[in-house]
């Protein structure tokens, strides 16, 4: 398993079911504002969250077939990011230079992973079948999975890099795949997947208690 998941490489950006077919959603990783959308072909794409025309967030866009239409002026981009249609000028063939900026985007371990397009890291490959369980927002800046679990427990995790790992949680039949999506000053998202439906409820309770633990006030 590849170990580099810092933002030079691949980062968790959400559970697979956060971007359903035909929808576009927003993900923030550090300072990067990203639109993740899924076409009818089932493929998830991750793009810089601004239309090249007037900067509107593409996470508000409309997905039709395998194209994304910006909500502001209807500029429509094909699945690779190229502008295919400008409604204000229906007869115009959009110049090839108009492109949404794409990130690398793969799905593995029940989660969506993104990397900046200039990254040369190979994408993560997480073995086994994982079922999306729950995402929690944590109002605390986090610098990695070790900080989430605490130094004493960090070695419990089978690390998949600084931002994700597999661990055993008391009371669960299978393992939990836990990923941290850092959002800088906005805090972080914690994403959890489980190995089967029998663990969904307990894993959900566990991640809630994890958030409570992380958000406890710390005496100065």
């Amino acid at each position: 398993m590849d170990s580099v998941v810092s933002f030079a490489g691949w980062m968790p950006a959400g559970l697979q079911n956060a971007a359903e077919t035909g929808t576009s959603v927003r993900a923030v990783i550090f300072e990067d504002d990203i639109a993740i959308w899924r076409g009818q072909d089932g493929l998830a794409r991750a793009w810089q969250n601004r239309c090249p025309h007037r900067g509107m967030r593409l996470s508000y866009g409309i997905v039709r077939e395998n194209r994304l239409t910006c909500l502001y002026h209807g500029w429509t981009y094909d699945g690779t990011g190229g502008c295919a249609h400008i409604p204000a000028h229906p007869d115009l063939v959009p110049p090839k230079s108009i492109r949404a900026k794409a990130y690398g985007c793969v799905e593995t371990g029940g989660m969506i992973w993104v990397a900046r397009s200039e990254s040369s890291e190979p994408p993560p490959q997480i073995s086994g079948t994982w079922m999306p369980c729950r995402t929690m927002q944590v109002n605390r800046s986090l610098t990695g999975l070790a900080e989430v679990l605490g130094t004493g427990k960090a070695n419990l995790a089978l690390a998949m890099g600084a931002w994700a790992g597999q661990l055993r949680v008391a009371g669960l039949q299978g393992a939990v795949l836990l990923a941290v999506q850092p959002m800088g000053a906005r805090g972080a998202m914690l994403h959890a997947c489980v190995t089967g439906p029998e663990d969904l409820t307990r894993a959900s309770d566990w991640i809630e208690s994890l958030r409570g633990h992380l958000e406890r006030p710390i005496a100065a």
């Binding site: 504002d33 969250n49 601004r50 090249p52 025309h53 007037r54 900067g55 509107m56 967030r57 508000y60 909500l71 502001y72 002026h73 400008i86 204000a88 000028h89 115009l92 230079s97 108009i98």
Partner: peptide, 24 residues
């Protein structure tokens, strides 16, 4: 307002190389 509060950046870019205009 829903559009205006979701344009990135919130300030107006006036350098013509930044946001791509068309005839409209």
């Amino acid at each position: 307002r829903m559009i205006l509060e979701n344009q990135v950046p919130r300030k107006l870019p006036i350098d013509p190389r930044w946001e791509m205009p068309t005839r409209a």
